[in-house]
Amino acid sequence: MIDLLLEPFAYEYMQRAIWVSALVGGVCAFLSCYLMLKGWSLMGDALAHAIVPGVALAYLIKLPYAAGAFLSGLFAALAMALVRVRTQLREDVVIGIVFTTFFAVGLLVVSINPTSVNVQSIVLGNILGIAPEDVVQVAIIAGVSLLILLARWKDLMLVFFDENQARTVGLDPVRLKILFFVLLSACTVAALQTVGACLVIAMVVTPGATAYLLTDRFGRLIALAVTMGVSTSAIGAYLSYFLDGSTGGLIVVFQTLLFLLAFVFAPKHGRLAAARAARRPLPEATP
């Protein structure tokens, strides 16, 4: 039995899949703490789909896929900004139009050159089959992002909470927001490899949302979210060896399970706690 459980660790590709997934899951979870507080969650989804054509083209002309992804993400962001400034359309409409357009172009490129890249590995991720040079790219992206986040998480928190105060203590909110979106794009690119374009949104939303139900402090929120992101990603990658199933699917299912647990059982913000509070004859008076 033990031998069977340890079997995945005997393969180098499995070891790689587990630690890369854990790293990417952790950084995405870190970002999710900010994203879910601003109502920008769909931006993560939009970015993930918008980088598909870049990845496809990069494979086609043998560039590092991260470069292609980044450029196409940038174009998508510019396109969204342009449509928004030039029309009266609402933000969700603009996001909807731009990201589906980019995704469609991506699928088109892939279908015209079916040999250059496997569409399934972009849309659904393929961490078990990740190429060693891609591992290096993903590790650098995720590692650098994590270091930047660890150094600047408090400044980012202040900008997200209260831009005016951020300015009065000498921070530049615009620069920090740009930094955040660069990190988000970079990590979306990295997560493309593990869970694929369709499920990136879960990686950058669910862990933060779960942690939000469990704590009222931002530092703990990050610690909880990152722990959940790392563990669900590592376990998902590990179990996908036995189930022979989609790694991304497993990771996201685990993240959702944790969310449901928190939704019901969270000590203060869970449904059970709410029911208990409602049963109490008189709510605790706030002096």
């Binding site: 202040l158 005016n164 203590v169 921070l171 402090r217 931002f218």
Partner: peptide, 28 residues
């Protein structure tokens, strides 16, 4: 320069405690 914002400008659901908010005044 310190600024006391209007109530509508603040996201009251943000996961921060009272002392965390006051600590934000010390960042500078």
């Amino acid at each position: 320069v310190a600024y006391v914002p209007q109530a509508e400008e603040v996201d009251w659901n943000f996961p921060v405690l009272v002392e965390d908010v006051v600590m934000m005044g010390r960042y500078g």
